[in-house]
C-alpha cells in the first residue's frame, strides 16, 4: 500500500546558517545527487534530506501497518477458503512491507519506538485512504484494484529514489504488490461476470465510494505541494502528484470498461487533443478533513493500533526477559 504525499506534514526550515565545511559537504552531496548517485545510510547528508526521508518513509511504513486493518477486518468473513487464504497472504504482505520500511527509516538514526510513538500519539500521519471503511466484500476487491493500483503507480518511481535503503525496500514491495492488485480485480471480475444483480450492484457501490478517495491518494495538486519541489530536486520524488494521478486515471478507465462498471465522474472523458482523460474536480476539503483527523474511521484505526501495541507489551517484555535469562545462563555455564 502507500503513503500519500509527503507534502502533508509540517514544513521544515531548510535554510540555516552553515559553516564553510558544511557548505562544502552539501555541494559535494548535491553533485552526487545530480550525477544520479545513490546515497547510503552512513554517507553524509544534509539534515533536511534526512528529516524529509524519515518523515516520508515512516509515514509510508505506518500506512502499510494501518492498511492491514480495513482488510484484516474481512479475513474471517471472506466468502470462500480460497479468498480467505489470498486475503491472509495479502494482509501478511502489508505487515512485511511495513517492516521493510521501518528498517529503512531506522538506518537514518530514528528508532522504531520513536516512530511508533509518533504514530500512536497522532503526531505522524499515514495514508488517509485507510480512514474509510470497508463495508462489503466488494470493498475488498475494490481496495485491491484501485487502492493498491494507485499505490503501485506511486511506488514504482520510488524504486529509483536517491536514498538507497528506501529504493531497495521499494523494489521488494513493488515485486510483491502486483499480486495485490490482480487478486482484487479478479475478485471483482468474478462478481461482475458470475454474480447476481445484487452482487453487481455491490461492486458498483464500492467503486462509487472508493474512486475519489483513491484519486486523493496521490496527494494535493502540484500547485499546492510546497515540499514537492525540493523532493524532486533530491531525487526522493521522481514524478509529480498530478502526473501520477493522470497516469492512474488513464490506466483505470479501460479496466473499468472491461469490468462493466461506471466510474462515478460525469466529467470523465477522453480528451483527443491532450491524449489523456479529463476528469472532474477533486473535493480537497474532504481530503484535508480526513488528513486532519475527521474521516469516517480515523479514531477507530488509531485506537486499534494503540490497543494492539499496549496489549502486546507483555509479550515483547517477556520475550526480551527470556532472551536475557538464556544469555546469562550461557555465560554462567
Amino acid at each position: 500500500m502507500y503513503t500519500q504525499a509527503m507534502s502533508v506534514g509540517p514544513q521544515d526550515v531548510a535554510a540555516k546558517a552553515k559553516s564553510a565545511e558544511d557548505a562544502a559537504r552539501e555541494a559535494a552531496f548535491e553533485a552526487r545527487i545530480d550525477a544520479g548517485d545513490f546515497i547510503e545510510a552512513k554517507d553524509w547528508m544534509p539534515e533536511h534530506y534526512r528529516k524529509t526521508l524519515v518523515r516520508q518513509i515512516s509515514q509510508h511504513a505506518h500506512s502499510e501497518i494501518v492498511g492491514m486493518l480495513p482488510e484484516g477486518n474481512w479475513i474471517s468473513r471472506a466468502p470462500t477458503l480460497k479468498r480467505k487464504a489470498i486475503l491472509l497472504a495479502k494482509v501478511q504482505d502489508e505487515g512485511g512491507h511495513g517492516l521493510y520500511l521501518y528498517s529503512a527509516a531506522e538506518t537514518l538514526g530514528t528508532s522504531r519506538d520513536q516512530m511508533l510513538d509518533a504514530l500512536h500519539s497522532g503526531k505522524a500521519k499515514y495514508s488517509s485512504i485507510f480512514n474509510y471503511p470497508t463495508l462489503t466484500w466488494a470493498d475488498i476487491g475494490v481496495v485491491g484494484w484501485l487502492v493498491d493500483g494507485a499505490a503501485i503507480m506511486n511506488q514504482v518511481p520510488l524504486c529509483r529514489c536517491s536514498f538507497a535503503p528506501y529504493a531497495r525496500a521499494m523494489i521488494r514491495v513493488c515485486r510483491e504488490e502486483s499480486f495485490h492488485q490482480r487478486q482484487g480485480y479478479e475478485a471483482l471480475l468474478v462478481m461482475m461476470q458470475e454474480g447476481t444483480a445484487e452482487q453487481k450492484a455491490m461492486v458498483q457501490d464500492a467503486v462509487n465510494r472508493w474512486w475519489w478517495p483513491s484519486l486523493m491518494m496521490f496527494g494535493p495538486a502540484d500547485k499546492d505541494s510546497p515540499n514537492s519541489e525540493q523532493s524532486m530536486r533530491w531525487g526522493i520524488k521522481r514524478i509529480s502528484n498530478d502526473q501520477l494521478r493522470q497516469k492512474f486515471v488513464d490506466a483505470t478507465v479501460p479496466q473499468a470498461q472491461i469490468l462493466g462498471i461506471t466510474l462515478p465522474d460525469p466529467d470523465l472523458k477522453w480528451n483527443e487533443e491532450r491524449g489523456e482523460h479529463d476528469f472532474g474536480a477533486i473535493d480537497w476539503a474532504e481530503f484535508w478533513r480526513v488528513v486532519g483527523g475527521d474521516g469516517p474511521c480515523n479514531r477507530e484505526r488509531l485506537a486499534t493500533r494503540v490497543k494492539a501495541w499496549d496489549e502486546g507489551a507483555w509479550v515483547r517484555e517477556a520475550a526480551l526477559a527470556h532472551a536475557r535469562k538464556q544469555m546469562n545462563k550461557e555465560q554462567a555455564a
Binding site: L99, Y100, S103, E106, R112, R168, A169, R172, R316, A319, L320, H322, A323, Q326, M327
Partner: peptide
Amino acid sequence: CGSLHAPDAKM
C-alpha cells in the same frame, strides 16, 4: 536482504 528486530537469535 534487510534487517529486523528480534529478542534472540532463534526468533
